[in-house]
Amino acid sequence: MTGEVAVLGTGMHPWGKWGRSFVEYGTVAARTALDDAGIDWRDVGSIVGADTVRGGYPGYVAGATFAKALGWQGARVTSVYAACASGAQAVAAARAQILGGLADVVLVVGADAAPKGFFRPAGGDRPDDPDWLRFRVLGATNPTYFGLYARRRMAVHGDTPEDFARVKVKNAALGALNPYARYRRQVTAEEVAASAVVADPLRLLDICATSDGGAALVLSSVEFARRHGVARPVRIRAVSTVTPRYPSTVLDLPDIATDSAVAVAPVPETFRASIARAAYEEAGIGPDDLSLAEVYDLSTALELQWYEDLGLCGEGEGAKLLRDGVTALGGRTPVNTSGGLASFGEAVPAQAIAQVCELVRQLRGEAGDRQVAGACVGLSANQGLFGHGSAVIVVR
């Protein structure tokens, strides 16, 4: 297909709390990806960096920051920010450059050095920042938001804390097998239930941590990959970066005229479902074609919601899908074979790139004890603050 680009290399820096600069994590991941691809840095035509607001000015110009760290060699440079979707937006920018003929080989890098605890808004009082508004107006930190979402699932669909714990048990078992994961230990349902309540009904082991980490990809045109000796490369077939649809627009900026509001017809799906649908339509596949998926499990309850939004089951059937083993390794559609955020913690600009790294390794048959038999199609999905969609479909 004309919209495909090849993945020549993947690279990661292990997740954890290392106390060093995000630049170091990203540089390690980038060099690992270049080695995996068999490409010299001097032969890269473009570098796209996923920004981090926690890295000072260098974090806001991540593409140039990593280009400098690797050694100035004249490559085109791009920096993107889309909150949790930054990595997928970086992949989208790289793919556009390749398909547009601007570069044969593009390096994509994301890394973060996250503070302990939940993410605080950057830059002090920011009434234009939705995080600041949630924290200051609603008093709702991220764990509080996750807890409200879990309560809704319990009320509407009958999910239970035991169902949420099953997600953690599944993901921890897979993370224990992943050398890049921060938490490499299996967890029992009893341990989840015994952990401290953070935002009822969610406990400490139901919520992902914040972490340091880095991830990178080397992308190229399919033709370049074949000239480079890769006859059948893993390919990115679709990238969805859609925004939400709402039946009305609420304008809160005084310098925008009210007649500029755009109203659209209501859609019978969640924003996350629209992200997945756009990716499926571009790739020409459906949920039944997936070999595996990597989703953003900020909380255990949110992973269950992703099952439904990806079309793996009907509305309200996520917990049953989990109980039936469909999303476990060996099931019909394993989800978060990497161990997910439950095992990694969140390093925001790196996470969507790391999801693609896992898919690529699975499709190459390089996932070791986490390997999904016969994997040929994978999807990664998350969403970023301020309406940033994020889904990537990878095929073999």
Rank of each mutant, 00 (worst) to 15 (best):
D128H: 06
P58M: 14
L298I: 10
I47N: 10
D35T: 15
I39A: 08
G110R: 01
R95V: 04
G9V: 02
R272H: 07
T65K: 11
E303M: 00
P201Y: 02
H13F: 12
T52W: 04
R245I: 14
D212T: 12
R76K: 14
P201A: 08
Y180E: 13
S299H: 02
V44K: 04
F119V: 14
P244S: 15
Q97P: 13
G101P: 02
T333G: 01
A64W: 14
A140N: 04
K116A: 10
V360D: 05
Y145L: 09
V91D: 03
V348M: 07
G374Y: 10
D369C: 10
A352G: 15
C357E: 04
R232E: 15
S291T: 15
R232P: 05
D163P: 13
P247N: 14
A150G: 03
R361D: 10
T333R: 01
S390L: 08
A199L: 02
D36Q: 09
P143H: 04
T2K: 14
A67D: 13
S390T: 01
A62E: 13
G147F: 00
A37G: 09
A350L: 05
R226K: 13
A278G: 11
S46A: 15
A350P: 08
R76P: 04
Y246G: 14
S390Q: 12
D125K: 15
D252C: 11
T32I: 08
S291M: 11
Q362K: 08
Y180R: 11
Y280V: 07
T27C: 07
G331E: 01
E24D: 15
H13N: 12
P254R: 15
G311H: 02
Y183A: 01
G110I: 00
W132Q: 12
V109A: 06
D36G: 09
F386C: 12
V106K: 12
A93D: 08
S248D: 11
D309L: 02
R237M: 05
D289N: 10
D125Q: 14
V267A: 13
V28C: 11
G11S: 05
A196Y: 04
V28E: 13
A231S: 15
A30Q: 04
V326L: 01
L329T: 03
G101M: 04
G11C: 06
G59S: 13
